[in-house]
């Protein structure tokens, strides 16, 4: 499943880059994220609780930031698994200057398996897009909160 899009942030790429490398901001913005612990350089362990259709449950996994080119782009490698199945995400995030602000272009390649794939596939795309949308909305809020 491919989920692509772009979101604008009202701050220059350097600031947005910083935000997108702040574990606390990322934890608060990620829907259902219960824990995000740094376990190494650009490596985190996370616990997330998400429901898709009738399949609700907790995923545990790792998040790695790779191929960093500050403040232009990085990749996120996310691996999570739990009773609802597993989620593997390879996401590219690009931070492009756009008239004083920053346009974040994202392309998420999401692989899902287990019950969540078999039961939830009909709504998975919608739920995925919604989760990602929520994430960016909250990141925008983080930026605003920080600025105020």
């Amino acid at each position: 499943m491919q989920i692509q899009g772009s979101v604008t942030f009202d701050a220059p790429p350097e600031r947005v880059w910083e935000l997108f490398n702040d574990p606390e901001a990322l934890r608060r913005a990620t829907p259902g994220c219960e824990r995000l612990d740094k376990v190494g350089e650009d490596r985190y362990e996370a616990v997330m609780s998400v429901g898709v259709a009738a399949i609700k449950g907790t995923y545990k996994g790792t998040i790695e930031i790779r191929d960093k080119e500050p403040p232009h782009r990085y990749r996120l490698a996310i691996e999570g698994s739990g009773s609802p199945g597993f989620v593997n995400i390879d996401a590219s995030m690009e931070f492009v200057p756009a008239g004083g602000g920053t346009q974040v272009n994202y392309s998420w390649d999401v692989q899902v398996g287990g019950p969540v794939a078999g039961v939830g596939q009909r709504v998975l795309g919608g739920v995925g897009r919604w989760l990602i949308g929520e994430f960016f909305k909250k990141m925008q809020a983080e930026l605003r909160a920080d600025a105020s």
């Binding site: 899902v112 794939a117 078999g118 009909r122």
Partner: peptide, 9 residues
Amino acid sequence: QLLTTTFMD
């Protein structure tokens, strides 16, 4: 991955 594991699909 088998995507059709309910009678909805």
